[in-house]
Simulated assay, not measured.
Amino acid sequence: MSSTDLPNMLPAMLPRLWAFALRLTRDRHDAEDLVQRACVRALERVDQLQPETAPLSWMFSIVHTTWINELQARNVRDRSSAEWDESRIQNVPDQSVRTPEEVLMSRQIIGAVMRLPEAQRAVMLLIALEGMSYAETAEILNVPIGTVMSRLSRARQTIGEGFTSGR
């Protein structure tokens, strides 16, 4: 991959990056800023993209790392985040969902995923929604594959408990 390839590839990646960022940040403006910062960072460091690494996986990694850095900076600045407001989230609709029942189930599942702790939510978003493999997810999040499997298991268990308890 040459340094001229990434700028041409980024526009096609933006919808998936933005959806991932929106689900990570839970805020439209934060997601927009996050994707913009991640794209700038990627373009500045395009020479660090290894030939065996998929550009989309690399971009997901940059988005996630940029978000973690932002959370840490917010904690250092002692800024508290706004209280979670279900009405503010704008979900990116799944084009494969067709019936009203499927739409409702999709919204319930996305809601359950959004209530997960940050680490579990990132794993669930990458594997379940983005279709990344365990290995790709481990690379994106810079954690061992066993950690990915553990977080995914806990996330699934938490979501399952939420549905059985009627949340």
Rank of each mutant, 00 (worst) to 15 (best):
Q36R: 14
P11K: 04
M13K: 07
P15K: 04
A12M: 05
M9Q: 11
H29C: 02
A31S: 10
L34M: 13
T25A: 07
L10E: 01
A21T: 03
Q36M: 13
F20G: 00
R16S: 00
R23S: 02
R26E: 10
A19N: 01
L17R: 05
Q36F: 12
R16I: 00
M13G: 03
C39Q: 15
R23L: 05
M13R: 08
R37F: 14
H29S: 07
A19Q: 04
A38F: 08
L17A: 05
L17T: 01
M13H: 06
R41F: 13
L43S: 12
D27K: 11
L43Y: 13
L22A: 09
Q36N: 14
T25G: 06
M9R: 10
C39A: 13
F20L: 11
P11E: 03
M13L: 08
A38Y: 09
L14M: 06
R45T: 14
D30W: 13
M13D: 05
D30L: 14
M13Y: 11
M13E: 01
R26G: 14
A12V: 04
L22D: 06
P11F: 03
R26C: 07
M9G: 01
V40G: 11
D33E: 15
A31L: 08
A19E: 01
R41M: 15
V35K: 09
P15H: 04
D27I: 09
D27S: 10
R45D: 10
P11M: 03
R45C: 08
R45F: 07
D27A: 08
A21P: 02
Q36T: 14
A19M: 00
A21N: 04
H29T: 05
R23C: 01
V35D: 09
L24E: 04
L43A: 12
A38T: 05
F20T: 00
R28N: 07
L10W: 01
A31C: 08
R26N: 09
D33Y: 09
E44T: 15
L10C: 02
A31Y: 06
R45P: 06
A31H: 04
D27M: 07
A31W: 05
M13W: 03
T25H: 05
L34T: 10
F20Q: 02
C39P: 11
M9D: 08
F20E: 01
